[in-house]
């Protein structure tokens, strides 16, 4: 098997997010970045395949330089090589403009057998980047995957669908987005985390990837925000206040009167 590439994302820690009240975009500088939780499954899957097949794992992330600690976290889990995709020209990218950068970076890393990502990021929640990247690379993609087994030069991939589970056999290379539902996530090794402190990593920008600026970032994004509006809510129903026990009694009575409770 050739190397595995894992793409991870730094997302704002939910409680620390501040929103620009005028423009309604995240003030990313204000937030503490964490590893996108669904990406943990991608890293864990890569490490399980590494354990079994001794394959090299390259982890890349696109974002401002403050995602570096998240890449180092991946090194702590067992990644062999770290790549930061960072350039002012990447800022404000929608999923297509993002996928163009990731796909191009993956091209420079050939040969590889597998590209792993999380199902979706918890900030954008589109789930679009893995299949878009696969499509740009002209590779098959599978989303919402529960397990991957490598056997006789092929991958067996278990995916969860809206109807059940499917077992697929696919020739490498391919792109997979992992379901967050894994049974176990290994902790990072302390020794490796210490090693990560002085670790070398590569940074690639638009010029390194030979990508023209007009297809990148906000400018290269075909989807645009026309505006935002606030949904104003006015109190429409009754407000009940008082002792919890009394309120609970009234609550049950209401459920009975409306026919929802038979006892």
């Amino acid at each position: 098997m050739e190397k595995i590439i894992v793409c991870i994302k730094g997302v704002p820690k939910p409680e620390t997010v501040k929103v620009d009240p005028e423009r309604h975009i995240l003030i990313r500088e204000s937030a503490e970045l964490i590893l996108n939780p669904p990406d943990k499954a991608a890293l864990e899957m890569a490490m399980r395949l590494k354990d079994r097949h001794g394959v090299k794992v390259t982890v890349l992330s696109m974002g401002p330089p403050n995602v570096l600690p998240i890449l180092k976290e991946a090194f702590g889990l067992g990644a062999d090589e770290l790549i930061l995709l960072s350039d002012r020209a990447f800022a404000g990218a929608d999923t297509l403009a993002t996928s163009r950068v990731i796909a191009q970076a993956i091209r420079t890393l050939a040969p590889y057998s597998l590209v792993l990502m999380g199902l979706k990021s918890i900030d954008g929640e589109t789930a679009q980047v893995p299949p878009e990247t696969a499509s740009l690379l002209n590779l098959p993609s599978v989303i919402n995957v529960l397990n991957i087994i490598y056997r006789e030069g092929k991958f067996l991939v278990i995916r969860e669908t809206n109807y059940g589970e499917e077992e697929l056999e696919i020739e490498p290379p391919l792109v997979v987005s992992m379901s967050p539902k894994l049974d176990y996530f290994r902790p990072p090794s302390l020794k490796r985390l210490l090693m990560a402190k002085n670790l070398d990593y590569r940074t690639l920008g638009a010029v390194d990837l030979s990508l023209p600026e007009e297809i990148l970032g906000l400018r290269g994004s075909p989807t645009k925000v026309a505006g935002v509006f606030e949904k104003v809510l006015v109190q429409r129903g009754e407000l009940w206040k008082g002792e919890p026990e009394e309120l609970a009694e009234r609550f049950l009575e209401l459920l009975r009167v409306r026919g929802f409770l038979k006892i």
Binding site: T95, L96, Q128, V129, P131, E132, A134, E160, T223
Partner: peptide
């Protein structure tokens, strides 16, 4: 649906067009 989420991004990238989610 999971099929929609698997297909639409592949087609959008193939056609080089924008895609809005959910």
């Amino acid at each position: 649906t999971l099929q929609g989420l698997a297909l639409a991004p592949r087609i959008a990238a193939e056609l080089g067009v924008g895609l809005c989610a959910h």
